[in-house]
Design a binder for these strands. Structure first.
Lengths: 330, 330
DNA sequence: CTGTTAGCGCGTTCAC
DNA sequence: GTGAACGCGCTAACAG
């Protein structure tokens, strides 16, 4: 920076002002400074800048598992959004372990991130971590709520997703449904609740008790292999808690030579890459990751500008994507 | 840090030495310092440390598209590997555009990353960027080679993958193969070449000219719909350039009510999540992402320790994962 | 082994 | 509008 200042015949402070745009500088002089720094290939050292300004222009992103498509897409959306605002992403992934999550998150803190968005990997065991870091930096939780007061939460409105799907099914004359969701305190219960309410309100008919289980694809396959399909007592649509389970269901039905959606419709949840490559492609609830990312960044921006303010809880409405598994040729 | 020094009755330098472990300190004193800093909840400011040491403990990772499963898994593997070494990941994704890639990478440079691993998004148009950044920091390219001398390259040995797959097929009596790959200067040609050589050497029979095309799933579906299967002139295995194409092939064959692998086997390439959820599950070439990540990190470590040294080109051998689409029940 | 001091490269007070 | 000097928090070099 000294070199640039000398070559441009100005002081080092002027160079700083031109390059950071922190204060007005005479246009001709500014132009000259820019030329010289271009010429010398000079770039300011953001480390020094950050140290001085107490702001780094970096945001920490912590996800349970970076290799999972859902989180990968979220990171992508966040990264894109942050890039636009001139920020850089410091990424960490918990590898499914609260211990690693904690260590990673603290490391990001040590690097003085301006904000942190985290998908807590365990609703219970991540709680202390979120409480701690939220005392140092603005934190926004995504998806999972660990229940620390004063911390933002951005999630999708799971209940709305279920209602949307049931409405679609009702519209195409499928009211004899079976719900299959993965167990877990997280999103499953909200969906279950919404489903039960819909059944009580008569917007769908719960042919059987909802199936709770685990095992991803295997769960769906298993259910599909034993469910009674068609007729007065049978099911005409299997509503799955995520796309992977739905894939399993498709597989199980195929093994029985049942047609989808001819004999029975199948629906998923997430729409993060699996649904469109399934065969038949899956009608599914689309998780609005771009909107989630935008909302998270908006909250960080807000905190930066307005300081504190009360925490918010935003449940964003998902949309539904209709594909072959409910209205297809079969 | 001053506070800690005072409370522990030592100098600020001693605190630094204890916490960074840069020099031996008397054990009792060290213990006391650690206690005090724990007590005060003190954590050293890595920004200041980095500024002083000219090393940040961060590594930049640039991928074409963070939402793509292949790159997501790579980032995951890298992140894991780097976490172990105590490093943090600064992530950027190019969103498919060389311009954004360039801007992102330069930003990472401005943040003084210790090293950079990049999957160049365009073999031609990313060249200048790689040349530029490699003058400032140790760069390791992954997958795509932009052809700048002196820059490491870690990739998978595509030819070996094809040979492995053809050997497996031959072993189960499938020699009448058809190759279907996506066009592109990148990996496709290496596979094509390996295939042709195998055909000439009589290790497989190319029933027809290899199909080059684009469109992912649609490409595979289209080929499957028109290919002649079985008999003296037909195909008994479709070898696809990636799992998505293979998925399309499965779909196309299903539409014709042909059994996989009964009537014809299908194989993929990548094994990053799609192959195991396909139905039937896909026999595929496994891209060794963990090994690639480990190799990349090893190179960075090497550069850190040994300084320069000549650049390396490592083509890692893939493995083959046998699933239902070649040896299944059908 | 420990303390003192200088300075990493900037942004920001102040005076002018 | 511009320049000089201080300090962000830490580590490296030296002296003790």
């Amino acid at each position: 920076m000294r070199d640039v200042a000398e070559r441009a015949g100005v002081s080092i402070a002027t160079v700083s002002r031109v390059l950071s745009g922190s204060r007005p500088v005479r246009p001709d002089i500014a132009e000259r400074v820019r030329e010289v720094s271009e010429e010398l290939g000079y770039r300011r050292n953001l480390l020094a800048s950050s140290l001085r300004r107490q702001r780094t222009g970096t945001v920490g992103v912590v996800v349970p598992n970076a290799g999972d498509l859902r989180h990968a897409r979220l990171v992508q959306a966040l990264s894109q959004e942050l890039h636009q605002r001139g920020d850089t992403v410091l990424m960490a992934h918990a590898q499914g372990s609260p211990e690693i999550e904690e260590e990673s998150a603290l490391r990001l803190l040590d690097r003085s991130v301006d904000g942190l968005v985290i998908v807590p990997c365990d609703v219970l065991r991540s709680r202390g971590l979120v409480a701690t870091i939220s005392r140092h930096v603005h934190v926004v939780q995504v998806e999972n709520d660990v229940g620390v007061s004063g911390v933002d939460l951005i999630a999708v409105d799971e209940g709305a997703g279920v209602r949307l799907m049931l409405a679609h099914l009702a519209e195409i004359g499928r009211r004899r449904t079976l719900l299959v969701v993965e167990e877990g305190p997280e999103a499953g219960s909200a969906r279950l609740e919404a489903y039960r309410q819909a059944a009580e309100a008569g917007r769908t008919t719960a042919v059987d008790e909802p199936v709770l289980g685990s095992g991803g694809m295997a769960l769906g396959r298993e259910v599909a292999e034993r469910v009674t399909v068609g007729g007065d007592r049978g099911v005409d649509a299997i509503v799955c808690g995520d796309d992977l389970v739905a894939l399993g269901a498709l597989d199980g039905l195929r093994a029985r030579s049942l047609a989808v959606p001819g004999d029975v419709a199948v629906t998923g949840f997430d729409d993060v890459g699996l649904a469109e490559v399934a065969s038949p492609s899956l009608t599914t609830v689309h998780r609005p990751l771009a909107e989630i990312a935008a909302a998270a960044v908006e909250r960080l921006e807000h905190a930066r500008a307005a300081g504190g303010g009360p925490a918010v809880v935003w449940r964003l409405p998902p949309t539904i994507v209709v594909r072959e598994s409910t209205v297809g040729p079969d």
